[in-house]
Design a protein around this nucleic acid. Structure first.
Lengths: 204, 204
DNA sequence: CAACTAAATTGGTCTGACCATTAACCTAAT
DNA sequence: ATTAGGTTAATGGTCAGACCAATTTAGTTG
């Protein structure tokens, strides 16, 4: 009868912590009670409390500082997404799939930045491109572009894919190719840039 | 010098478990070593191992059965979604980012399937759509579409975002909307479908 | 008042113990 | 030989205590 009732202690602690936050109207940056306090108040062992806290931490909801305490922080899915993505990537390591998604993200960032690149940034990037060895061009440019676009989630996942697609034979392009891409984006001719980029990825 | 090196034990355990899964090519349903074995093999305390396992469990990547062991399972955000939804309410920027990526993936799957939907599948989906309540339409249709598209990476990440974006207010569409989307994809009119989809996501 | 020191607080980690659940094994009755 | 029942071993669930490491706080000293 009491099938659902038997939940683990760390899950109950999870609930209690949530209630605590709501009841005390805690905001980002506010401090939670210490692990020992929580354990005592909730009638649980400290290890159970820690299991709950570690889980929440991995989700990105709290931040722990040694010697100080545990603090609420604004939700950032990036860490957990990263973990999950790595697990998922392990399962589905189809290089095609990785490349397709990578191309998709790169195309998206080009769209996001279409006509949005300042002359300052443009010239700065151009000057670096000239000096960089060929094999670093792609990573460098898109790292900068994702950075400029400001979507950290997109950026995180792209970097992840970047890591996984390293061993994949990639048709390296020369400097003028990336200069052209950059120019197109700056001049709002994103479609041309996307097409050119697509050709680099030998899909199918 | 070794500032960044000092990561917590449970995080290292996380890594090791991931490596173990990769090395042994574990699939959904396969069993992980026992907590005690992991602790010994990784030279860590059992409590640290448990912290890692609990965190992964909350993410929905593993399943634990008392007396039996710990098992890999296909990713199902169950608890994490509930937790996150109560913890996170606002955080517009993060939501925006999740939504943007979600829309991007959905658009991509529409492209992938453009003109590729068999009459059989079309009619099958259509018949289900009619019977489904409004709030389940979106998830259902795209689950099926991602399934049909066959790109598991895309699919997994989408499901992931689907879980994370649950608490986000979503403008629900009626049945005819999704019937139209489906029809457009079947008839190779993907651009129309994408545009319509984009309007559902109120970005910016 | 500033600077240094000692103590208290807090998170990080390990060990060992015990309970609850499940699976595997063995034994005895049919 | 098969099956029912009970015992044993393995595994997760939980707690308590100890110790370390980082940080803050309180106290002391110059």
């Amino acid at each position: 009868m009491t099938k659902d009732t038997k939940s683990k202690v760390y899950q109950e602690v999870l609930e209690e912590i949530r209630n605590y936050i709501v009841d005390h109207q805690l905001q980002d940056g506010d401090r939670l009670p210490s692990e020992r306090e929580l354990a005592e108040q909730l009638n649980a062992g400290r290890s159970s409390v820690r299991e709950a806290l570690r889980a929440i931490e991995l989700l990105g909801l709290i931040e722990t500082r040694h010697g100080e305490g545990t603090f609420l922080r604004s939700y950032q899915p990036y860490y957990s997404v990263e973990i999950l993505s790595t697990f998922i990537l392990q399962e589905t390591r189809s290089q095609q799939e990785v490349l397709q998604l990578k191309l998709l993200l790169e195309s998206q960032v080009l769209s996001n930045l279409s006509g949005q690149i300042s002359t300052d940034l443009y010239e700065k990037l151009l000057s670096v491109i000239v000096e960089l060895p060929k094999e670093q061009l792609h990573t460098f440019l898109f790292t900068e572009l994702f950075n400029a676009a400001g979507n950290r989630l997109l950026s995180k996942i792209w970097h992840l894919l970047e890591g996984f697609s390293n061993p994949i034979p990639f048709e390296e392009q020369n400097h003028s190719f990336y200069e052209q891409i950059l120019l197109w984006v700056k001049e709002n001719k994103t479609e041309s840039a996307k097409e050119a980029l697509k050709k680099v990825y030998i899909l199918e």
